[in-house]
Design a protein around this nucleic acid. Sequence first.
DNA 1: TAATACTTGACTAAAATGCTTGGTTTTGTT
DNA 2: AACAAAACCAAGCATTTTAGTCAAGTATTA
Lengths: 159, 159
Amino acid sequence: MRLTTKGRYAVTAMLDLALHYKDGPITLADISQRQGISLSYLEQLFSRLRKQELVDSTRGPGGGYRLSRDSHEIAVADVITAVDEKVETTRCGGLSNCQDDSQCLTHDLWTELSAQIHDFLMGISLGNLVERQGVQEVAARQEKAETNFAMAKDVAANS
Amino acid sequence: MRLTTKGRYAVTAMLDLALHYKDGPITLADISQRQGISLSYLEQLFSRLRKQELVDSTRGPGGGYRLSRDSHEIAVADVITAVDEKVETTRCGGLSNCQDDSQCLTHDLWTELSAQIHDFLMGISLGNLVERQGVQEVAARQEKAETNFAMAKDVAANS
DNA sequence: TAATACTTGACTAAAATGCTTGGTTTTGTT
DNA sequence: AACAAAACCAAGCATTTTAGTCAAGTATTA
């Protein structure tokens, strides 16, 4: 399980789809504009996302992409593994060409940790994030308002 | 919070240190041989680990590295952030140069997810992993013993 | 039939990766 | 004092990955 900017772009784009689910098919041009990701890079990402059947595409005018299933049925881990091609993580190939016990030991430890991270991300769905945001949005607005207020006070004090 | 091969190398090396904690200072040459990581790459990684005060070094013959504190006091997240230099993750700089609400929304969502991953990895210490392995090691040995026994029986049966 | 939208592939600049080489210090041992 | 084992440092380098661009398509439908 890797976690790079590539995966972040994919997750961000998928979240955009989840947020605009009701608006029918979403064009990549829309996502590109909203999220500041280049159109052709999105095309690459969505090619993989479609092959993994995470999104459905509609061609022609009025077409675009939409999530293939409910946002609660798509885990963050699904999105990340879809765009990150497999990299051979184990140097010993998972079998018995290890040099000594120590090597296998730490490899096992890493494998276990990696599995835990994967499980963790499997437990978080796109819908999950969007929902949580719905709740926090209010709090965030309030906090922002407070900050703005504090800053305004500072400005006033320094003038 | 990124999660790349670089971080994996660092965690693997630190786990090696944790496992050989009793053997006094561990040389990078030892880790290099055991874990199959090049010496100079380890030097780069440990330069950062030392600056973050995750390891103590001793120079001269008989020297080497050891964990700066108990393996339970070092989180996996500590190790990963030590070797991964900061990358600007937010396109809008965290402030108000976002184009519209949608952009900020998904950025917030990603930030939240990233924070969750970080928290998760903060909750896992090196000692934690080693302990868990300690439990599994016995099981592995037993399984191995059983296999050896079965193989010995086969050999006996075929003679 | 033209516009819209998706597909494919070749290409690229920049960054990251993993390593090499060639040192310099520091320090225990002989 | 000489030596060797180690940490430390820095420049450079080949390869891969990233994050795109560009161009030339194909499919769909107003």
